[in-house]
Computed example of a mutant assay.
Amino acid sequence: MKIACNDGSCVICTASVTQIKIPKEMRLEFEKADFLEDLISAEPADQKDLCLRLWKAALKGYDAKWHEDYKKAKKKKKAELSKDDKAMIKKIEKNISLFERIFDYNTWFLNKANSPHYDAYVLAANLGRSSCTYCNRLYTSTMKTIAGKKVMRPTFDHWFPKYRYPMLGLSFYNLIPSCTICNSSIKGFKEFDTATHIHPYVDADVLERYRFSYDYLEDLKNFRVKIKSDVADTRIMKTYKDLKIDICFDAHHAELADLIRVREAYSQDYIRNMFNSYPGANLSFDEIYRLAFGISYEPKDFYKLPLSKFKNDIVSELLLLSFTTELKK
């Protein structure tokens, strides 16, 4: 919160310390044991409760409905705003501004000055996410020059929207490494919630709960990618509908067509022999699979190569899942 820690060697405090005046009720929340630590590292469901406590401490009589009213008012044209609308906007935005000053995402986490503290580049490097967490279509590697100059990193999507949860600006669970298309062009300000959407850090088994498939549209002479789930998993379907995942993957007809051609050109016996032709190379099944299809086989490694989930599902469908299981034995 930019409050001095009294450590004379602290690179943050010695650089710049700004005292921020906050309401007494909010300060009492911050002083409770583990409150700030939980706000940074607790799971999303718990963070929501902490954020609600801060809003109630900041605004007397606060009700969660206020944010719904605020969102509706922000969509109106200036001439359409009532006196109550203007008061609502002013009240909410005043406190959003306060929370943004306390949890200073722009100067702390973005770290444009490249000062030596924990920032977006450090987090991205530690996570090691090589492809977009949401779509697994594009590379999101983190790279610096030998001299340490920043070159590229993934963008970080705020899973809970910033206008309602500005106090989660530095929360690990609320910062999802993603590509610019998913973060800005598609998700944008859409509201995600653990009750209606899957969270990539909480729903660890999500890759096993759905799969990619396709249809061939005879009248259009073209493919259509689709997402399937063996159970009625509404959270998965809503998440990927909101992220437009099936539409995005329709851009990968070339990769789909290549896999189909491989299946049409080579029999299962040929593919089986190909997998059995490296006995002296000491290659693991995953390494041979990667050589054959250019993707990772294990779900835990899908993030390392773009399109791994998509291609693996299509390969399993084309070859039959039982056959790919046989190959691994």
Rank of each mutant, 00 (worst) to 15 (best):
F172G: 10
V262K: 14
D193N: 01
D7H: 02
M152G: 09
F249G: 01
K309R: 02
Y121C: 12
A79N: 08
Y303P: 01
L138N: 10
D258R: 12
D269S: 12
M152D: 11
D84Q: 12
R164G: 00
D286S: 15
R211D: 02
N95F: 12
F156G: 09
S296H: 14
R224W: 03
K90E: 10
P161Q: 04
Q47E: 11
T239A: 00
E37G: 10
L39G: 04
C132H: 05
F160D: 00
L50S: 03
D38R: 14
I176P: 05
L321Y: 04
Y163I: 06
K190Y: 05
I12R: 11
C182Y: 02
K244N: 04
K77G: 07
F249N: 03
T325W: 13
G294S: 04
L320H: 03
E80A: 13
L220K: 15
K24D: 15
R129G: 05
I40Q: 09
I288H: 09
I186L: 10
I314T: 01
C248V: 04
D250S: 11
K74F: 04
F189A: 13
I20C: 10
L98K: 08
T234S: 02
P161W: 03
H252W: 06
K75N: 10
S178F: 13
L36A: 11
C51D: 03
L28R: 15
M167R: 05
G294L: 05
T324W: 08
S178G: 15
F35R: 06
K226G: 00
L39S: 05
F293M: 08
K77C: 03
I176G: 04
K71L: 13
I146Q: 14
R261D: 14
T194W: 02
N282W: 07
Y134N: 07
D215S: 01
K78S: 13
F160Q: 01
I146N: 13
F249A: 02
F103W: 09
P279Q: 10
D85A: 12
C248A: 09
D84N: 11
A251L: 13
E68R: 12
W159E: 01
Y163C: 09
E29N: 12
L170P: 13
E31D: 14
G128T: 13
A124L: 08
I288Y: 09
F109P: 08
L291R: 15
A195I: 00
F160G: 00
S131F: 04
L81F: 12
A281K: 15
K304C: 03
L307P: 02
S322E: 14
Y303L: 03
S308W: 03
F212T: 00
T140R: 00
C10A: 06
P166G: 02
Q268A: 14
R27H: 14
Y216K: 11
N136Q: 08
H253W: 06
R27K: 14
L283M: 15
V17T: 08
R53P: 09
F293R: 06
A87V: 11
G61Q: 12
R209A: 00
A292Q: 14
F35G: 08
N312W: 01
V122W: 09
H67Q: 06
V202P: 02
L36Y: 13
A257W: 07
G294N: 05
C248F: 01
D269F: 06
I89F: 10
G294K: 05
L207F: 02
V151S: 05
F302V: 06
M274Q: 15
Y165V: 10
I247Y: 05
I314N: 01
K74I: 05
S16T: 04
L321P: 02
T133Q: 05
S316N: 12
S16N: 09
C5L: 01
L320F: 02
K150T: 10
